[in-house]
């Protein structure tokens, strides 16, 4: 079989998800072609082990993201099964390519094996859909769900210019508002409690949150005592949250707090008291002072590929 990977656009080099897509393609067997839409990174792509061909696309339409003109410009270069990373842009482009080719798109898969057998979480992770599909489809794969392929390849690089015109104009970039993610919508929440000692230590949580793209929450005790916004409060009288990951830092785990977060899919607790009730609901408990454990955790997260 043949697999065509559409790389996630990146100003320089390749996006980390590309090597993961290559690994998925190799798992399916057959040849693997990578299309680089605009930008650069063809050299790095050709060096990923398992890539057979790299095609760089250039043209006016790649100056900013326009899924529809991109898919039009690629349609003749695509062969076989199409893989993309399930990023927001990858999903939009993947759907457009599928419609261009008149085939199905299966989004956000977390497992892919020959056959082609796929697994994808649905209902916000409350269930898993298991699918078998023909090779004639577009698949987007959730970033970091597959081990990346190693370097060590040397694929042939070609380039192609597209004459497709872009149909939307970017007027201005709006400085990314420092708007914080709301706890009720976040996939990851890192919350602090009285164990942090002082409101100013919430900055440390903010740092980790910005690395993870997480929201920062708080227990009622610190919202009341340290005057934090009520919108941060998780628990009985605050928000009830069900993120994929909830990290409780210096929170003992009073029943009122547990009421608001116990249905999180995974719970990490950092607390120096080994008997703190939060450990009873934690999937991963770290018995340590937050001053030591949080920076260690942050470093480890930053070191992730």
């Amino acid at each position: 079989m043949t697999v065509t990977i559409i790389a996630e656009q990146q100003q320089e080099g390749t996006h980390p998800t590309l090597a993961q897509m290559v690994s998925a393609a190799k798992g399916l067997g057959g040849t693997c072609k990578v299309i680089i839409p605009g930008g650069s990174g063809e050299q790095e792509a050709s060096n990923i082990s398992g890539v057979d061909k790299v095609m760089k696309m250039t043209g006016e339409c790649f100056s900013s993201f326009d899924s529809q003109s991109w898919s039009s410009s690629m349609k003749n270069s695509i062969e076989g099964t199409v893989l993309l990373a399930a990023t927001p842009a990858g999903r939009e482009l993947g759907a457009s390519i599928a419609a261009e080719l008149g085939i199905s798109v299966i989004q956000d898969v977390t497992s892919i094996s020959p056959g082609i057998k796929l697994e994808r979480p649905v209902y916000s992770g409350k269930a898993i859909e298991n699918l078998t599909t023909s090779e004639n489809c577009v698949i987007t794969i959730r970033p970091n769900s597959i081990e990346a392929a190693e370097m060590g390849g040397s694929a042939e690089i070609t380039s192609q210019d597209s004459t497709e015109s872009i149909r939307l104009a970017v007027l201005e970039a709006i400085a990314k508002a420092s708007e914080k993610i709301d706890v009720s919508e976040a996939d990851i929440i890192i919350s602090g409690g009285r164990g942090l000692g002082d409101a100013s230590n919430f900055e440390k949580l903010e740092e980790v949150a910005s690395t993870l793209g997480a929201a920062v929450g708080a227990s009622r005790a610190v919202v009341d005592e340290w005057g934090l916004p009520h919108s941060m409060q998780v628990g009985q009288t605050g928000k009830t949250v069900t993120p994929a990951l909830y990290i409780a830092v210096g929170i003992s785990g009073a029943i009122q707090h547990l009421a608001g977060m116990r249905s999180s899919r995974y719970i990490v607790a950092i607390n120096k008291d080994p008997d703190a009730p939060i450990f009873a609901v934690a999937d991963y408990g770290i018995v340590a002072s937050w001053e030591d454990a949080l920076p260690a955790m942050h470093d480890a997260i930053k070191a992730l590929p």
Binding site: T240, T242, A259, G260, R262, S263, P277, F279, A280, V281
Partner: peptide, 16 residues
């Protein structure tokens, strides 16, 4: 204390 976690996991306690 495991009882508690077990209950949460089995969905006996839900926050729906």
């Amino acid at each position: 204390m495991r009882t508690l976690k077990g209950l949460y996991l089995s969905g006996c306690i839900d926050i729906m």
